[in-house]
Design a protein around this nucleic acid. Sequence first.
DNA 1: TACAGATCTTA
DNA 2: GTAAGATCTGTAC
Length: 973
Amino acid sequence: MQKGDHLFLVDGSAYIFRAYHALPPLTRKSDGLPIGAVSGFCNMLWKLVEESRETSVGVAPTHFAVIFDHSSTTFRNALYDQYKANRQAPPEDLVPQFAVIREAVRAFDLPCVEKQGFEADDLIATYTRLAVEAGGDVTIVSSDKDLMQLVGPGVILYDQMKDKRLGPQEVFEKFGVYPEKMIDLQALVGDSSDNVPGVPGIGPKTAADLLGAYGTLENLLENAGEIKQAKRRESILAHAEQARLSKRLVTLDQHTPLEVGLDDLFIHEPDGEKLVAFLKAMEFTSLTRRVTAKLGTDASAVEAAQVDVTAPARGPDLDPGGTPGGEKTGSHLAMTPAAHAAERLQAEAATPVDRSTYETVRDEARLEHWIARARETGVVAFDVETTSLDAMRADLVGLSLAVAPGEAAYVPIAHVGEGGGDLLSDEAAREGVGAQIPLGTVLDLLKPLLEDPAILKVAQNAKYDYLVMRRHGVETAPLDDTMLISYVLDASSSLEGHGMDELSERFLGHKPISFKELCGSGRTLKPIAAVAIERVSEYAAEDADVTLRLWRVLKPRLAAEGLAHVYERLERPLVPVLARMEERGIRTDRQILSRLSGRFAQKAAGLEADIHILAGEPFNVGSPKQLGEILFGKLGLPGGKKTKTGQWATDARLLEDLAAEGHDLPRRIVDWRQLTKLKGTYTDALPTYMDAEDRIHTSYSMASTTTGRLSSSEPNLQNIPVRTEEGRAIRTAFVAPAGHKLLSADYSQIELRLLAHMAEIPQLTEAFRQGIDIHAMTASEMFGVPVEGMPSDVRRRAKAINFGIVYGISAFGLAAQLSIPREEAGAYIKRYFERFPGIRDYMDRVKLFCRRTGHVETLFGRRAHYPDIGSSNPQVRAAVERAAINAPIQGSAADIIRRAMVRMEEALAAERLSARMLLQVHDELVFEVPDDEVEATIPVVRRVMERAADPVVELAVPLVVDARAAANWDEAH
DNA sequence: TACAGATCTTA
DNA sequence: GTAAGATCTGTAC
């Protein structure tokens, strides 16, 4: 929160009573649930959100919260036991609506705040103070006079019913005192509805007069003897202490401990589908119509949500809270998400993991028992044990299940004797390990459970388990992934990763058996199938148990921290999409790679011989250490620099500079390195990944970058060469099979476009709208050179600066990139910021936000945490700041292509196209398309990609996608 | 055998 | 100047 921000605080409890009384009583839904107040509440909230957005109410909110009362007992009861003692119980038909209204607020994707032991007014007072201190403005949506004491500079009260705004002047007109005197006035007048006594015989008018004359309550009480009117004087003298007590009762607590921070109230677009699902469930047809019209959600495509207030469960895929048959968790519906999450963490951390209770399932009856238990709880954590870390090559060895914390089992399937079984027949190998249910039977029994839409399956790194099960004919769904939940919550460069062992130690305080402890490593590595079943059972069941416990701790945090949208829209649905891409793989031409390897080897050998002659002795060219000795020691070449570790630096840029000075040796070393790199990393290595159909299956990691990008490994298909001609030759080996083409579609300048949008730079936005060459435009702005006939070097420099901006530019880095003095680079940057001052403002805003909150956010709300942003080491801090500046840009682009990928399969299917997505390379998607569908596919792919930000973010710049199809990746790209 | 550092590939 | 992963070398264990 900062200057210019605007916080809206809705007094939810007052809202409820107004909605209830404003509507005809006994409005009921078809199933009999009374929903009059819910309806009124939703209408008012929608109207408020919509109107405030259109700024007719005043300034549009940047932060928003709905605040509720949480309990009847507060610190005021300790002061005065009669406080609110004569409050009447709420009407009977209103009671069940309270929980539904909290659901409504969540459906609107608005933060819903309440705290045990505190009144809504105190929370409102605290948020108001914090917002004002941060320099922001506040609109309190309420007409309660108790809140008038908060009105002041930047703080107003808004009465939605009357459409009236109350500032200090309006308060004075109404009560005869300015807001800062409201507390004293209330102390004198009292409040019969809250049982605040006040001073008998003193009403608002008298109180205002007295305060006008005496200034403050305390001054009045001290000098009450001077009051002329006898009755008034005696009453005040007699009730002075009562007035002081009343003052304490009506004074709002501006220092309530908060569980939801001010910055967590940052507003974002409502999730149309979630909201419509709720409204449909409530049968609010006219509001549904208005909402869909506004948000562009297709109501017919959305199913009504399950909102059931009679049972604590809300359906397993929405909430890991009350599961039917699970232990009592309290009526969490009445809790804030944050309180719920905190309670969960405490509960799980307090329950130790006990491996001795796990069961090894060796017959069908017991397996059926576990399946039945899973059906009772509605949630099951599972984990597959296999022969390989590579999901595409892995065979099932066993499988574990957990249905409740501490209630877990392992189902051995393909364990063999201690010898390993390599030389034995299956049957002989399985001797002596005890009974195991045959694989086919296990699958037959588990398939209905794993595919049951009503049973939530939880896994750690679910893509792996999903893929293994899919290869065994099981389409696991719905699926939650603890690794991805952790990633969404805590993506950070300095925090460790999201592996299960790590998460378990962090959140449960428990260290699970590691794979290494179970199977050894290196020379001692033993196939898991050959490890004693009882030991594997403990290990595997523990993994499922821990996964379930982690899920119970982490899942509620998503809602509490406003990250449910990121998880539900950008992570969860991508799991099966990526799994299928990995499963398909891409066809590769072994011959092309082999020919290239030969050519590279020959050329490298020739260069190596030359190098040895020029060096005067044979040495290992691949050793930078030996090379440095030769170049800068023996031959005494100039320009020797040291690396961090004191070795001679021999990187390509340095060698290029030497070559430019006319030295033969460095040139050849650069060439040799390129060839051996291409050979070693690509042409030699790629064939080892090919399967029987000559296809290569990469593995995507969804949780290993701080920004939200994917990464690819084994092999990495996101760094296949493209810049040099020899490198590009490798791309010709990635081919489409007979009758097909490869289609490559990539976003043009997506990061710069997003920068233009996010920083709101008019020149850049306009240039993108008109389709102007952005680097030439930048050069023209900076150097005053007309775009027509611009020298290529001028454009090149501008291009480097544009890239630099996205990377959080430094003079040092730009100087290195352009091989110019640092002073010159610094001058460029200065000039750039003069021409585009909005960029500097934007960067400052991002840094400030990060400093305040410890994180930055993408357009879609994904967070990247930078705990070291406040480092006292200027170099560290500058590096973190650059990362923090880059993350929202890189991350928003990553979010956009994720959205495109999630929507792509359905869009293609809807057009009856059989194109298959194979690869993602950050801003590019590669498809395999039948020859005769290429023409029809291109517009569909482009449309999905170009509209991927809709409807959550309306970009000020167009997204442009270039798409081309060809027989191989090089020609398509 | 395991790990860190240097180097090079991509967006 | 951002974000990744793979390979090779050299050294520590």
